[in-house]
């Protein structure tokens, strides 16, 4: 997802959050499940009773009872990468995406412990597989952003560092 802007500075895409616009509709959650767990099925066809399905984003409720959607920040200095003992979690400097390599992962959960945004978790079914946002790699836009009806989740191009 690297591209050049007019100023010819290389940029990367980031999913940004404007929680004041969030209505807590869970479209982003179902869209994420649809893409990653239900082979791209329409979000209205997602089996909401299937406890084995995992969303890579979360909606939290703040002090005043308001919802905030949270998606992996693909951090510039990602705690999950810095704590990974196996080399499974890496930062792709080109795209800015923080990737998880299931094959290398030792399921130690150091990353779950250290992501301050609380977006990582073991999967519901086996409790062993890290559930991690991949920015819907290969798609033109992440499913959560595409499905957000209010603009609470949006894409911003930021400078590559």
């Amino acid at each position: 997802m690297t591209m050049k802007t007019e100023k010819n500075k290389e940029t990367i895409k980031k999913i940004m959050v404007d929680e004041s616009k969030c209505q807590g509709c869970y479209n982003c959650t179902f869209a994420c499940i649809a893409v990653h767990e239900n082979k791209g099925k329409n979000i209205y066809k997602v089996d909401t009773h299937n406890k084995n399905f995992n969303s890579r984003n979360v909606i939290t409720i703040n002090e005043d009872g308001r919802p905030t959607p949270m998606v992996c920040r693909h951090c510039d200095m990602p705690e999950c990468v810095l704590t990974c003992i196996s080399g499974a979690m890496t930062k792709d400097e080109e795209t800015g995406i923080v990737k998880h390599n299931l094959k290398k992962c030792a399921s130690c959960f150091m990353c779950v412990m250290s992501c301050p945004y609380g977006v990582l978790k073991p999967d519901n079914k086996t409790g062993k597989i890290i559930i991690k946002c991949d920015m819907c790699e290969g798609e033109d836009m992440p499913a959560c952003v595409k499905s957000c009806p209010t603009g609470a989740l949006y894409i911003k191009e930021v400078e590559k560092i």
């Binding site: 703040n62 002090e63 905030t68 920040r73 510039d76 301050p116 911003k156």
Partner: peptide, 19 residues
């Protein structure tokens, strides 16, 4: 808020890169 419900946005602001 109930302690076990704490999330990062109860304590931190985000910058213009969303961090």
């Amino acid at each position: 808020k109930y302690l076990f419900d704490f999330t990062f946005d109860d304590f931190f602001e985000l910058d213009d890169r969303g961090q």
